[in-house]
């Protein structure tokens, strides 16, 4: 495994505030890597440190083995897709895409060929002579992508790339970004606060909180085996059994997390509990049921609307729930 990016004890302070408080991370060549976390968790600052827009307070950044901690952005072999796309308003789509090649002195003929190829990749051929102001949000996003990949960087950095798009377009672009990454074979690192986006697109995810990485793993690991209460709560719906409930129901000490779709109605499975229904929400393909246990914890479960189950439980009524012990994970 070749390492594309290696961060060592990376720190960045803004005045008194430590935006990044000691991050260690290795990202492999060709990986689709997500940095997930709430706003202010330091994920965007880490991306900006890798791009070179911020200078680390301490620690090192290596790109393909080479220490670039003090290298200015224009000498780093990474390119960025900005959250606001940052297209040059006075240039056409063609000129925007060619920009990186032009400032590096690539000849006009080659520039045109490579720009066209990049525009083909993002399915935007035919828009070469438009100005950014004449494009929709989704099209601008594609121009920003083309402008970055035309330079064939080792690593592509994407800052909340889909944040400004509507839901339908976002799903479409998620698929396309993934395809593009597979085609190009270059490392993609993207920052997002949307857990669903991270889970669907990434090979691996780093979850950030308060300037530090709290867990790194595959989407499945992050989802099924959250390392602590924060990850369990931030990724997916939080179902926590605090120590009193754990002792009562599981006979174990500590805090445990169970994903809602693993909990079933009735007492058919290994772990059994009884509680009062506090809320029932119809969500279309699922019904979300919140059950308040005697010890004070609330468990959420998702009942599939496949016609097999009886009518939804009534609020305030007592119901039985159960799950398999292999789906409970200690988070504290």
């Amino acid at each position: 495994m070749t390492i594309a990016i290696a961060l060592q004890e990376l720190r960045k302070n803004f005045g008194e505030v430590a935006a990044v408080a000691g991050v260690n991370l290795e990202i492999a060549d060709g990986e689709f890597f997500a940095m997930l976390g709430p706003s202010g968790s330091g994920k965007t600052t880490v991306l900006r440190l890798i791009a070179g827009f911020e200078i680390p307070t301490s620690g090192s950044i290596k790109i393909a083995g080479e220490d670039v901690s003090k290298t200015p952005p224009f000498n780093r072999d990474v390119n960025t897709v900005f959250q606001d796309y940052a297209l040059f308003p006075h240039m056409t789509v063609q000129k925007n895409v060619e920009y990186g090649l032009r400032v590096k002195g690539v000849a006009k003929a080659e520039r045109e060929v490579r720009a066209l190829r990049a525009l083909e990749r993002v399915k935007l051929v035919g828009y070469e002579n438009r100005k950014p102001s004449q494009l929709s949000g989704g099209q601008r996003q594609r121009v920003a992508l083309a402008r970055a990949i035309v330079n064939e960087p080792k690593v592509l950095l994407l800052d909340e790339p889909l944040g400004a798009l509507d839901l339908k377009l976002r799903h479409e672009m998620q698929k396309e970004l993934k395809e593009l990454q597979v085609q190009l074979g270059i490392t993609f690192i993207f920052v997002t606060h949307d857990q669903e986006e991270a889970l669907t697109m990434a090979d691996r995810i780093a979850v950030f909180n308060q300037g530090q990485i709290v867990q790194v793993g595959s989407p499945k690991e992050i989802y099924e085996q959250p390392a602590n209460e924060f990850v369990a709560g931030f990724v997916g719906i939080s179902n926590l059994l605090h120590p009193e409930s754990s002792r009562e129901i599981l006979g174990k000490a500590g805090t445990f997390s169970i994903r809602p779709e693993k909990i079933k109605l009735g007492h058919d499975l290994e772990r059994k509990a009884t509680g009062k229904v506090s809320q029932v929400q119809f969500l279309g393909s699922f019904t979300r049921i919140d059950v308040e246990l005697a010890m004070g914890d609330t468990l959420t479960l998702l009942q599939e609307n496949d016609g097999s189950s009886l009518a939804s439980p009534v609020v305030e009524s007592l119901i039985n729930i159960s799950w398999d012990s292999k789906y409970e994970f200690q988070v504290g």
Binding site: A51, G52, F53, P72, P73, F74, V78, N79, T80, F82, A86, L87, F88, Y99, G100, V103, K104, R147, A148, N151
Partner: peptide
Amino acid sequence: EASSDLGA
């Protein structure tokens, strides 16, 4: 930043 990022 974008200009610098693209090598200018």
